[in-house]
Design a binder for these strands. Structure first.
Lengths: 191, 191
DNA sequence: CCGTCGTGTGAACGCTCGCTAACGTCTCGT
DNA sequence: ACGAGACGTTAGCGAGCGTTCACACGACGG
């Protein structure tokens, strides 16, 4: 699962995806125009339709790609870390790394999900649910016993904490921010 | 600072604000039409312009109102709690209460800030900055010494954690969610 | 009783947007 | 050498949007 793939013939395509993510994060899906995306990617307007079937299709590919990347990463971590403590730490580090590296994708994912067509939205939700379940399982195996609602709330709270990056890390070094977020997240889910 | 005021002559106005918040939270500012807001509020389309100067003006009043409400609440807490521990706990409880009570406002505030006209956006940002500074000050006075960047990141992370409510608390009782979020937030900022 | 004001209406204007159409050009495999 | 296909362009369409306009109607102070 390569999120930044780039063999020669797909360079323009990837560029469009990157610029679209930046613009969606800044202005929202409905606040971004096809012409704007094209201009940012160095082509003009309708050239986008040579690479994507529609504006919604572009968003769909972006969000499905993110969800698959995250779920894949989480599954790899589960396989590599049988011990609960190490697994949870690795999950936290993985999410922190992603949030610090691609903050625009974090923003778009939880802001413009509702703009997806029904089938893509269901697909993304299913992937997200699987991802959350891995977290919930890791949280249950660590720390004090809690009921399902508490664990669910804790998992989402941890995501919210880590994903606060786009609002705060603009002027902070990634190393400092990453260390702070990781230790805060672990302290929070251990409470 | 009354967020849900409602003397007789302003009832329609408040209803419009409430419905607009719901729709903005669901579809985003640019994804919501004036006609849609009117329909949700029981009037049709252009009647909105009897109460607000423009769609942007409506959003501005909403976001400025939220920021003022929060800052006012935080200042009251500061005055009432000179001791660092009690103050931080009260700030956390206040934010948790707000996030659980009005999740749509949380969503709109950090999603559609960029859609504000320049002057309102500056005003909201100034109010938010003052609010964050109160949190930073309370965090500094509690727990281990940290530098400015760490405290800034910690404050935003705490907001992200608490404000995760709109994504998780839909099917959980407010009491359970509130308790979990408050204890997680305190554990996180103490890390 | 009446003029004014607050609040509503439907019609229309002007603009922007997503998308399609028609056409040009460069790259290649045969 | 040349036809095909990938990729780009500009022009234009139809729809939806925010906003304004002209008008209607009930409440109410003089």
């Amino acid at each position: 699962m390569e999120l930044t793939a780039g063999t020669a013939p797909t360079r323009r395509r990837d560029q469009i995806l990157v610029e679209a993510a930046r613009l969606f994060a800044r202005h929202g899906f409905h606040g971004t125009s096809i012409d704007g995306i094209g201009a940012a990617a160095g082509v003009s307007g309708p050239a986008i339709y040579r690479h994507f079937p529609s504006k919604e299709g572009l968003l769909a590919e972006m969000l499905v790609g993110i969800s698959e990347y995250l779920l894949d990463g989480a599954r790899t971590i589960v396989a590599a870390h049988p011990d609960p403590g190490g697994r949870l730490t690795a999950l936290v580090d993985f999410q922190v790394e992603f949030a610090l590296t691609r903050p625009e994708l974090i923003t778009v994912q939880d802001r413009d999900l509702a703009s997806l067509p029904d089938d893509s939205r269901r697909r993304v939700r299913a992937l997200q649910r699987a991802y959350v379940e891995i977290w919930e399982d890791a949280i249950i195996r660590t720390g004090p016993p809690r009921d399902a609602d508490q664990v669910r709330t804790a998992a989402h709270a941890a995501f919210g904490l880590i994903n606060s990056t786009p609002r705060s890390a603009a002027h902070t070094s990634p190393e400092v921010a990453g260390a702070v977020l990781a230790s805060m997240a672990l302290a929070a889910v251990g409470a």
